[in-house]
């Protein structure tokens, strides 16, 4: 048997094999039971030619295997090329859920203050006048205490009109320092319209420690506003009046729509009102047994809906309560 010739013959046949079927035929022809090589191997008697034929067999097997995988790859490739899909068709439908816009903002604010080392307090909504008014330096005759502004359950119990009562509860329960925020629902006697809702959300902030100043309030609120409305925001204070803070201020943030140049959102002023704040009135500190000569504090309150309306350009606060999926799924 001419090893060299057989090998050449096999090599050229393998090269020409165009399918796995042809390859199988070649395997039978060159390596099958009655192939020339197998017959020769059966008859071999000397060690040298045996080794040579076995080597040939291994080479042929390897060549065959190589050709087989090449053909398989080609076949798969061929199949894939015939198996196109329309990649622009939609994917399989997953109905993703959404967190409410107010929840998203609440978490943002919470995370900002967690980062500043504040705790988060979930206050109660049905409150006594002691916590909603007395502790907040609102005497019995204060206009906010009249039923025309608030929703009372009895003479001494009402739906909290701001998140501030949780300040009093926290300070009563612990010694200073206190660093807390408290987001939640508050209630006013308001008829629903585009910007009013009888139920809405505030976040209350309170810091009481040695040496707290208006400057600390300004820095804290600037940090918050930049986190919420972008790093270019500026903050200013305007004087105001609240019973529970003295001095009282209203923080304005430079308009995120026009960068302060003036536009309809900021009513051409370049500034947007963001809530109320100030230095905690000494009467409030004394109410909870703190010594105003030893510690001072700042407090602020912001409306979460207001942030939603301003930042996301939601035109009507009622959309936040209707839960129409066409609205909710945008956020």
């Amino acid at each position: 048997m001419d090893v060299e010739k057989l090998e050449q013959e096999a090599a050229s046949a393998l090269e020409q094999a165009g399918s796995l079927e042809q390859l199988e035929e070649l395997r039978v022809r060159f390596l099958g039971r009655s192939s020339e090589l197998k017959l020769a191997l059966r008859e071999v008697r000397d060690r040298e030619s045996g080794m040579s034929l076995n080597a040939l067999r291994q080479r042929l097997e390897a060549a065959l295997e190589e050709r087989r995988s090449a053909l398989e790859r080609a076949e798969l490739q061929h199949k894939l090329m015939a198996d196109s899909i329309d990649v622009t068709l939609p994917g399989e439908s997953f109905s993703e859920g959404h967190l409410h816009l107010i929840t998203q903002i609440r978490r943002e604010v919470e995370d900002i203050f967690l980062g500043l080392g504040y705790m988060i307090v979930d206050g109660r909504e049905v409150e006594t006048t002691r916590y909603n008014f007395d502790g907040l330096n609102m005497p019995a005759w204060h206009p906010a205490r009249l039923s025309g502004h608030s929703l009372f359950l009895s003479d001494d119990v009402l739906l909290r009109t701001e998140t501030s009562p949780s300040q009093i509860r926290v300070m009563e329960a612990q010694a200073p320092p206190v660093y807390m925020i408290s987001p939640g629902r508050v209630y006013r006697r308001d008829t629903p319209d585009a910007t009013h809702s009888p139920v809405f959300h505030q976040v209350e902030g309170l810091a009481v420690d040695r040496g707290i100043s208006l400057a600390d309030l300004k820095g804290t609120l600037l940090h918050l506003m930049r986190a919420l409305f972008g790093e270019k925001r500026e903050l200013r204070f305007r004087t105001h009046y609240f019973p529970f803070t003295e001095p009282s201020i209203e923080p304005d943030v430079s308009c995120h729509m026009c960068d302060g140049a003036g536009c309809p959102v900021c009513k051409q002023s370049g500034w947007i009102e963001m809530g109320g704040a100030g230095i905690v009135d000494p009467n409030v500190l004394e109410f909870v047994g703190y010594d105003p000569e030893q510690v001072s504090g700042f407090a602020f309150g912001l409306g979460l809906e207001r942030i939603a309306l301003l930042r996301h350009r939601v035109p009507d606060i009622r959309l936040l309560w209707e839960n129409d999926l066409r609205f909710s799924r945008q956020f």
């Binding site: 500043l116 660093y179 040496g211 100043s213 208006l214 600390d216 300004k218 820095g219 804290t220 204070f237």
Partner: peptide, 11 residues
Amino acid sequence: LDEVPFTLPAR
């Protein structure tokens, strides 16, 4: 008010 600087509480 305009001169009040921006600081954070010294904790």
